[in-house]
Design a protein around this nucleic acid. Structure first.
Lengths: 344, 344
DNA sequence: CGTAGAATTGGAAACGTTTCCAAATCGTTC
DNA sequence: GAACGATTTGGAAACGTTTCCAATTCTACG
């Protein structure tokens, strides 16, 4: 049987309470006593039993990360694993455990979430890819569980969140392309139920409005989040009677698909067509040609989410954050439209 | 305060023990009684407190997944997130929680692992990317914690594992390339402390031996696991006095780097040079040209690891598994060597 | 209907902490 | 050195389960 607080107390010749106080911040313990207790702990190899303390405290030092397994985002999206790593690193650094659960968006999501929250299994939850009318948000708000989200949260009062300003991002991209002489820009959008989807389309329209140009509604294709979706959407765009000379894909994985579709048409990105992605996954710098894209600092966002959640758990006020995506210019948009092959 | 087992017992007019038994498999509870108890549970919205049961049972229904954050594999490797998803899905499906922790391979890894294991925080651990003389294996073996690993485990008695037969895989690739008329094949290897690294090099040598050819030691370049490493290694291979006409990269991410480096030299994969990857990440089917690669069923491996671990936790015997990677032929090796531009 | 044996049931004790209150000790000041 | 407040300390009770044993209730059979 493992060594308990009682063994430590006995060995150090003190009471149970004193050992417990030493464990938790050492308030009201004389330095000499504490030293003795700590020595005893070391000597006995004492490890506090988390279950006992969780039970008594009716909470856990555990953060829950909940993601939809089969929603839109493919499992292999580098976005996801970078986020995951940031969460794990920061949670560990802050002395929290990270509990991970997945559920298909369509079925049993709330049940999973309930189990997650029930009995204080976690002290707070992190959501990602928030949706319009997100039932998870509603559920957590009702349950009174502290949570934060990556992606806008609808009743702003429900929880703080980190949101990347996709509107600004796409608008910047559109302006960038217009500045390089493009006139017809295609947009590959995200699944419409994601909060960020509408934003990005809006940014697209803003960019057009700013240039006093009229949006060709056929040049907006809504996709999902996989590479194949990107290819398909690009096919559609290139088959338009008046195909665009530039394409903005709302995620890098979509852009990778676009890259391939363009290539398969015998065209070359950067020479025949411009392409802009969104995310700046590490791979984006390494495609051929390297991809101009809107950078989201995903790892930093992940660590920040953890810090925000912990503050929230501790009852401190936390403000929502909006991050401006930065346009990373690479070769996929290097050539001005006028010099593109096949341009008028 | 939450509703407890005691409230349920009272409401259903039964004793504590009966409710508890109903919760855990309903052994020795009459159907009528159980129905009454379940009704009471539903009515009161009872959720068992996991901390209490963990404390009493001195264990948790929790699986720990431990990964090295900054070892070699980049955070964004799709390999990793696919694995992660498989673990999460299967653990959830089996009624287990998944606890995730990361630590840099060089510092504090064992301390993290200890905290992980201490006090029964997890009932078993899953490791990945096992290393030669892996201290984690040693630690877990000594601690008596059930664990399984993705990657060979050295004292085979320590734990069951799933290993992909990299030797066979690379040998197959070499044979495939020889069969297509190649004579000089470069190999981009993995970090040498990984158990799988040596295997793959060995497979390479076997393939050469089988063809009664002599290995050019300069054609073996050890890399890490990032895209840039792949580029760098490819640069080195292409700068050899007698550059290879085909390259095998020991991971798809490395192959992506190779793809770029080759492209930057003005060469084209599939036309001027053949390329084979390892992993078959989803992207591999979508590069240009699509990548011939050795398929590892990562998601299936992940779910299987979970099942194996649970068996192990329950004391059932579990055998190690060796998976044969399957060569997926795509266009990156489509053309026989004789037709390659610049071939003799 | 009685009885043995099996199946079901009730409830006390225990898991290892934290938390509270009362008791003991300390340090100051008169 | 007495008195007093502040600080430190000890330990019982409680957190919500599980698990055991003993007690009770069934079932089947003569």
């Amino acid at each position: 049987m493992a060594v308990t607080i009682r063994d430590v107390a006995e060995k150090a010749g003190v009471g149970l309470g004193t050992v417990s106080r030493t464990l938790n911040g050492a308030a009201h313990v004389r330095a000499a006593t504490r030293a003795r207790i700590e020595a005893a702990m070391r000597e006995l190899g004492f490890q506090p039993n988390p279950h006992a303390s969780n039970l008594k405290r009716a909470t856990a030092t555990t953060i829950g990360f909940f993601f939809s397994s089969s929603h839109h985002r493919p499992l292999s999206d580098p976005f996801f694993s970078t986020l995951m790593s940031g969460l794990a690193d920061e949670a560990t650094a802050q002395g929290y455990d990270l509990l991970v659960a997945s559920a298909p968006a369509d079925g049993g999501e709330l049940e999973k979430l309930e189990r997650f929250v029930a009995g204080g299994r976690v002290s707070g939850v992190i959501l990602t890819d928030t949706r319009i009318n997100d039932t998870r948000v509603e559920f957590l708000r009702k349950a009174g569980t502290p949570f934060v989200a990556f992606g806008r949260v609808k009743p702003a009062s429900a929880a703080p969140c980190i949101d990347v300003d996709g509107r600004l991002g796409v608008e910047t991209a559109v302006k960038h392309l217009f500045a390089r002489g493009h006139t017809a820009i295609g947009l590959i959008g995200l699944p419409e139920d994601l909060t960020c989807a509408a934003d990005r389309v809006e940014g697209y329209r803003l960019g057009y409005a700013h240039a006093r140009r009229k949006v060709d509604e056929h040049a907006i294709v809504m996709g999902c989040l996989t590479e194949s979706d990107g290819s398909r959407a690009t096919e559609a765009l290139l088959s338009l009677p008046k195909p665009p000379t530039a394409i903005i894909a709302c995620s890098d994985v979509l852009a990778l698909g676009a890259l391939r579709a363009i290539h398969q048409r015998g065209l070359e990105v950067g020479r025949d067509l411009a392409l802009v992605g969104f995310d700046d996954i590490p791979l984006a710098a390494h495609t051929s040609p390297p991809l101009t894209t809107l950078h989201q600092p995903i790892y930093a966002i992940a660590t920040d989410l953890v810090r925000m959640l912990i503050k929230r758990i501790n009852g401190e006020p936390v403000a929502r954050k909006v991050i401006k995506p930065e346009l990373i210019e690479r070769e996929s948009t290097a050539r001005p439209a006028g010099s593109l092959r096949g341009s008028p």
